[in-house]
Design a protein around this nucleic acid. Sequence first.
DNA 1: TTGTACGCGTTATCAT
DNA 2: ATGATAACGCGTACAA
Lengths: 342, 342
Amino acid sequence: MKPTTIKDIAKKLGISHTTVSRAINDHPSTSRKTKNRVRKAAEAMSYSPNMAARGLAMGKSESIAFMSTRFAAPFISNVLDSFEQRAFYTKRYVHGIMPYSTRNEESVKEALLKQILRGRNADALVMLTIKPNERILAEYNRVKIPVILIENSMKGAHSIMVDNVSGAGKAAEYFIKTGRKNIGMIVGEIVQPPSHDLNMSAVERKKGFKSALLDHGFELPNRNIEETHAYIYEEGKRSLDNFIKKGDRLDAIFCAAGDIVAMGVLERAKELGIKIPEDIAVIGYDDILAATHLDPPLTTVRQPLEGIGIMAFDLAIEAIEGKLKEDKHIKIDPELIIRKSA
Amino acid sequence: MKPTTIKDIAKKLGISHTTVSRAINDHPSTSRKTKNRVRKAAEAMSYSPNMAARGLAMGKSESIAFMSTRFAAPFISNVLDSFEQRAFYTKRYVHGIMPYSTRNEESVKEALLKQILRGRNADALVMLTIKPNERILAEYNRVKIPVILIENSMKGAHSIMVDNVSGAGKAAEYFIKTGRKNIGMIVGEIVQPPSHDLNMSAVERKKGFKSALLDHGFELPNRNIEETHAYIYEEGKRSLDNFIKKGDRLDAIFCAAGDIVAMGVLERAKELGIKIPEDIAVIGYDDILAATHLDPPLTTVRQPLEGIGIMAFDLAIEAIEGKLKEDKHIKIDPELIIRKSA
DNA sequence: TTGTACGCGTTATCAT
DNA sequence: ATGATAACGCGTACAA
């Protein structure tokens, strides 16, 4: 049995499909009476619109694309979650948040971006953790699909960033205040080829950490820095191993690559009999749900996850409604949550 | 600037749009030569197909809908992640996994289900944690969109379930083996109105736990059972409070509602000075990433998350290809991971 | 207020 | 091997 269309409804009611369309979309110049008739019939025949057809006809999609690298990462899924929550709460785009994940593959990202663009598959594009290259961003600008970047920033796109310089600075100052001398850092890899995402957050956290340290007369030599690229648990373990292999005796590690990676550090330390925070103080980044429950509870720079999602959604709506004449760049100051690991 | 269409390419090459379409879709009766010309032009003009139009024309979507309650829950996002991973690995539906979340709202679920159905918006529907009502499932059957249920089971749909009876039984036996006498349980709420999702997993875990206990001569009174409905952290805290309020002195709690809830129990216990596992032994369910890192590390029934995602994807493909004559129901036996909390 | 006719970008049918 | 034409379901000028 084929699905009900507006024509079916029209036939049944002996009117034109145009009228049905108008009734369903609450068009002003349509009588209350026919609207009611149509809606009743639509309900009875369990009609629901064919989004593809609607999108085709309107060149619009009534949806927002939300793109990131993967869903399993707590940081990402939490932001997405609050983003959706906001949509639900404001009753806008309730069924229209379309999550896409790139699996960290440049080619997938490119393909997805093109697909969304040419198919007019979104009224707005939100990108978390990743960003488009200049060429494709220019195309989005040309067809007036607004782009909202989270944790990144570019000319031609709106953005929401947690102030990484400030956050990393707070970690540095805490280490110094608590008398740490030999300080290390684990941070996202900083790649330069512009074909790649240049990870702004990583760059900024590194900068912020280094300069805050320098303000107090401490240098951060490169050998005290380990890089990650997948931001996973195992990299934390490996990083700690590397630090030890290099023979430095660190007494503090700022894991700017995130709490997940910090978990790996904690775990490896436990395996090696290294005491946290006595031997090494550890500060993470993000404040994921599990951070409170680690052993020891993790001191960390909190990302205001819900806030980010909400602000991103509101920003997207503003942009879609054309209320933004120029790029809007929002910065949020993160907070250092002190627990037991440092 | 409007996006390139096949007509634009046709005009430029002086051929018909039909031929362009065939060339792009690698139609057999098209010359190598024109195929190459078309593809080159398509690339040059940075063409990419309008999915809405394609979907409209074909009544198909080349995508799989993945529906669950929300994204932020570790269990859900991990299954989704491995599901996608499998798609990527097998190079099928790489850009076509469409996640939907219902936010635990019955109305949203209904709307989404209808939308996907009438819009022919998916070649297959995967539902995690939730299930459709009989009426709408019947409609899916009628239009031959296969439905795959994870953690649920219905006639007319394929399913993948972790054997909850067995998993809960293992928890029960471990408690008994380790000499626990006063045993409690926290489990998902068991609601009957058929308009709701009747949570199969909750029902089965309860049944499995009770009967395994009974096999050893232990009754599980209702007062020793607390129910949750959102499966969140706070419910764990509240449940422990309730147990204490009721005045029973439990020495073991099986948190069948999941590790997240178990985290809440652990946390509240710590606040109250209750020692785990000395005073109360706690067993969780799921084995989320954080379980190893809790204080104490959580003993729990492991859900083979990656396995579920992979099997669900493969099942979906089989179903789409019409290889399944009847419902296929897969059961997986979970494993008890013993750590420190019990 | 309602209906006619056309277009959105693509695929499918039927000729040629 | 290629092309003209219709069809998919919907929205919308334009006309009535």
